[in-house]
Amino acid sequence: MPIDIIVGLPHLNEGALLARARSLQQTALISANGLSRWSTKRGWREWAGWRTHQLQNARGLSALCLDSAGFVAAARYGGFPWSIADYVALASAYPFRWWASADYCVESEIARDREEVIDRLSRTIRANRDCRKLAEDYGIADTLMPVIQGRRPDDYERCVDALWHSLRPGMPVGVGSMCRREIHGPEGLIAVIDHLDQILPSGVGLHLFGVKGTALPFLLPYGRRVASIDSQAYGISARRTAFRRGVPKTDMLVADHMEGWIDAQRARLAGRPLQLPQSLPPPTDCTPFDPWEQAIAQARAEIRDLIEAGELDHDELTAPWIEQWAADIYRDSLAG
């Protein structure tokens, strides 16, 4: 099956951009952030619900998918301004082809060290479980797309293992933290996809969020595994063109860039597959030898387990507890 090109839309306002998406009959993706309402009534900008009326404008599109806006929420707001329940309610407001589970991205500007990466994996696992439980209540579990996160290939495997029971043939699985990832290297895009291809059940396809167009020829050998990609990179191109020409960034200009981007991706997918033969070294074991550092590591692991099990909320601030938690572990080790 060919890799499906899904075009990210910044909004669902009637205009040249949406009309072009309809005419191209291209599957579209809208972000929860693009459907958000904001208020400044209390003197600051705060989230005020969804603009669900805009979903009526999606009629006529080939299909529409929904993204939780995990990266934007982390980078712009420091976290989701809406609850998981709010998000699943939005997912129930329209017959989306699929809607992505909420997730916690791990790009370097968001997760600045290894411990924070692993913390966000646990939060992603818990958010997936919370989304599935609420989706079952709304009767939309069949269109929920699990999302896995990671910095290294084995990080994604941790998410797969935790969500294994919910994976089934024919369903897509979203792969996050892709858009800023290099193609090459032990943590590169191909290393991640190759690893997932080896561990996932047959028939489980991958949706790659925000993959760069230059990576597409390298994905062709994984055509049976990679189901779809999405991007809104054409918007950046349109902004640069408008700035260079000294003209407004109109919806028509953006629509032209969108169509050009789609044509370019189709050409890349019709080209010659590229491969990166390489031997990837296994990740090094960074288990600390110092007893206090071991206690800190154990405390973090136990707190993550509680988040994944639902005993602690995935958005709960746990950093102040770690040293106190570790102190108890440290004392127990000395007593033993």
Rank of each mutant, 00 (worst) to 15 (best):
I183N: 05
R126I: 14
P273C: 07
F289V: 14
I322A: 03
G15Q: 12
W321G: 08
L253P: 04
R76H: 13
G246A: 14
S202W: 00
R300Y: 06
R59S: 11
P2I: 09
W47N: 12
K41C: 05
E293F: 06
Y87N: 07
A335D: 09
T40Y: 14
Q298S: 13
S101I: 10
G203I: 05
P81G: 02
E187C: 03
V117L: 14
N33Q: 09
T287W: 07
A242K: 13
M171E: 15
V211K: 01
P201I: 07
A297M: 14
F209L: 13
G49D: 11
L216F: 11
A111K: 15
D130E: 15
S23D: 13
R22Q: 12
S23W: 03
A309L: 12
E46Y: 13
Q26G: 02
T143Q: 15
A89S: 08
D161Y: 01
H53S: 15
E182V: 05
R158E: 10
M171G: 00
R123V: 14
Y222S: 02
R120L: 15
R180G: 04
A270E: 15
G336K: 04
F243N: 13
L18K: 05
A297C: 11
L216C: 06
A73C: 12
T124L: 09
W47G: 10
S83V: 00
R239Y: 13
P282M: 04
W99H: 02
T27P: 15
L12S: 04
H11D: 15
A270C: 09
S92G: 00
L274V: 02
P2Q: 09
R180L: 11
S237V: 13
G139T: 04
D251L: 06
G60P: 06
A233T: 14
L274R: 11
S166Y: 12
G70N: 06
M258H: 08
E316A: 11
R151A: 07
Q278F: 09
V175M: 10
D285F: 07
E316K: 00
A297H: 07
